[in-house]
Simulated assay, not measured.
Amino acid sequence: MNKKEVLEIRKQFSPENCAITRICGCYVDGDKEKRLEFKEAFLSLPEEETFKYYDIFKRTLSGTLGKNLINMGFPLEQELKGGTQDFLMQLKNSKLTDDMLVSEFYDKVIEYYDFGEHYLILLIHAAYDVPGRSSDGSEMFDASDSVYDYILCSICPVTLSKAGLCYNALKNSIEDRVRDWIVADPANGFLYPAFNDRSTDLHNILYYSKKPEELKDYFIEMVLGCSEIMSAGNQKESFQHILTNTLGDDCDYTVVKTIHENLNEMIEEAKEEPEPLSLDKQDVKRLLNKSGVTEEQMESFDKDYDENIGAGTSLLASNITNLRKFNIKTPDIVVQVNPERTDLVDVQVIDGRRCLVIPIDDQVEINGISVNPR
């Protein structure tokens, strides 16, 4: 799914566009025991509750594609009878009215979702009447092409509110506040099936993780049955490892700076594209060559890439560089540079020592205090 498709589904979580037919939930304590199960026709809920649920569902489809929102495909064996995709299909097709299937889903989550605290499993079914599109791209609501039938799962931590004092309006007094269990924003979740090319894609799923470095790999493998994926942090570390191995002793400031600049330029050129920029092995090889890495230095590149990332695995450009930050670090000093002005920093030999050289103008501050550079 791309940004536009995610946004199109997010827009359904409002009173005007609501296509949710049913909501189910299971409250789980820190000992993995079910405390509460419920199921309702969504539109029968009080209005003030539905707005709070809308917020949760929107947040389950929020964040950056490739970091918080990850497109994943099912291995072929999981689409056979008894596989995870087959189970999710049954769950979707039941429209969450089969209590046995819903309870089995809760049991799977409880068994394989490693959290250790209280949490709420929310599951909704919705049927979105996908409007057609005219030649100019505008929606034609009276010309529906298809119905996108889906389920959305949100797993929300439940935390105890802080102790404190409060004002009791009835008694007109200050007293100890009653501590409540509060449902927080979702930590993980998924949308099935995916909404690719504005239509149902039964072979793919969109996974959500609030923290990109805590993807819950075991949950993904055992409940969703999807192949192992690399987190944003792992992609960056693997890319850095490959650079270090490829360049060896020739890994100098100029080459690394040039790679950073070229990557950011590629991201800038692709920013209007619906899909985030991804780089396969050949793309990364071209990037390094363009940045001054020689063919001789690239001798071990293919092997390093296959071992650390995978021959058929691509990296998201936004995961392996930082558009907002360019740091130069020594054991005692950290220099933060505007990523658009890396040209201001140079490496020179002065009095026999290699030095970072940064030209300064009349505006210099130290700990917020303006000083005279002259």
Rank of each mutant, 00 (worst) to 15 (best):
S134Q: 03
V109W: 05
P157G: 06
S62W: 00
A126K: 01
E175Q: 13
I110T: 13
A184K: 05
D55V: 03
L69D: 05
V178E: 15
F105R: 03
E139Q: 01
C156L: 10
Y54N: 05
Q90W: 04
E117V: 01
V158H: 03
E79P: 00
N168T: 01
K52F: 02
Y53A: 02
A163R: 10
V130G: 07
A169C: 06
F141L: 09
N93V: 03
H118Y: 11
L101T: 14
S103C: 09
L65W: 03
E79N: 12
S134Y: 03
L69Q: 05
F57W: 14
Q78P: 01
Y113N: 04
N93D: 15
S154F: 04
F87M: 14
G66V: 01
M89A: 06
K58L: 10
G63C: 08
R177K: 15
F74G: 10
N168E: 13
G63K: 07
G66E: 02
S154I: 05
S154W: 03
K108C: 08
K81G: 04
E104L: 12
Y167Q: 01
K58R: 15
L69C: 05
K108Q: 15
L80E: 15
G132R: 08
D99I: 08
Y113T: 03
I174F: 14
L122D: 06
K67C: 06
G83K: 01
G63Q: 08
C153S: 14
N172R: 01
N93L: 08
L122C: 08
G164P: 05
N172G: 00
W181H: 13
